[in-house]
Nucleic acid binder design. Structure first.
Ligand SMILES: [Mn+2]
Ligand SMILES: [Mn+2]
Ligand SMILES: [Zn+2]
Ligand SMILES: [Zn+2]
Lengths: 157, 157
DNA sequence: TTTAGTAATGAGAACTATTCTCATTATATG
DNA sequence: CATATAATGAGAATAGTTCTCATTACTAAA
């Protein structure tokens, strides 16, 4: 499990090299932002953080690089929000298998580390599926939905 | 658990009535298509089936009615496909709690009934979340991802 | 059965996140 | 340095979805 940003960057560099991609300044900025946020972020959030640091990151470049990073296994694009792509560092990169907490009110998404209980129940379910119907399970996605602490405060106020 | 289409329609009628919505012909057509497909369908799939039955269902009307049906708890809009909304009858209506099998190759989505093992592991995970962080879990979503039977055939051919 | 009043419809415009295009710029390599 | 290739960035294009608004269909009261 990658814990320092330096290790992260060198791993990314390798992953990109495997596909003959350069680890450019823009791409480093994106990875740095995602590493530091350590939660799924939309494109505009990524741009906002970059902007705070006086990094000019054009929209088209950001999208293109996120797609390339995804293709190289550095970034994962989540399907969690109704109408917005959310990006995070890929599990293959961080070594941190996890699921997500999604607030139904504000749409905020946060990581949630898994537990062996759950993972065991899931593998059993996957085995049953592969036995009973002809579907080859290779992964899973779990979201717990509800109301986040922020929205809870606002509601009770 | 609703098993016949008649029961389904009368439940829908009640749900709509609660919000002073009429159960129009278009809305019935949509519910009928979703009931019979019994798998998540995109707007164009819904329109295609309707069209086969010589039902003219304009795009804007279909979208509007799907949104209203969702608001009344009749329809659920899934977040499963990258760039397409998928619709199915809501669990509250059918009484059939289930998860989804998603083919990573062709994007096809199918229902998968859950099992008590998995649901128990999930409730425990939800309790831990509510204990440890201030997030109120009210639901969950599980997708098993992999390769469907169709894509498996094509690949090995 | 009229008659308002309200809800639903449908064609097309508008919106918006994302992707594409292509001319320019940066980088790597011999 | 010279050349080839990759990356960039501004803006156009795309596409799923929502919005607008004039028309039509219901509903419920008179
Ligand atoms: Mn997981
Ligand atoms: Mn479930
Ligand atoms: Zn929230
Ligand atoms: Zn498939």
């Amino acid at each position: 499990m990658i814990d320092t940003q330096d290790k992260c960057h060198s791993s990314v560099e390798e992953l990109l090299a495997e596909k003959n991609q350069r680890y450019t300044t823009h791409r480093k900025s994106i990875v740095r932002v995602l590493f530091e946020l350590s939660k799924p972020a939309s494109l505009s959030e990524i741009l906002a953080v970059a902007s705070q640091r006086s990094i000019n990151l054009p929209i088209s470049t950001a999208y293109r690089n996120l797609a390339i990073l995804e293709d190289c296994g550095v970034v994962r694009r989540l399907i969690a929000s109704e109408d917005l792509g959310l990006y995070e560092l890929a599990e293959a990169l961080t070594g941190n298998h996890h699921h997500h907490l999604i607030c139904e009110q504000c749409g905020d998404v946060n990581d949630l580390s898994s537990n062996s209980n759950l993972e065991r129940a899931l593998s059993r379910a996957a085995e049953m599926v592969m036995d009973q119907i002809d579907f080859q399970v290779t992964g899973h996605r779990i979201d717990l939905t509800g109301i986040c602490s922020n929205c809870n405060k606002v509601d009770s106020a």
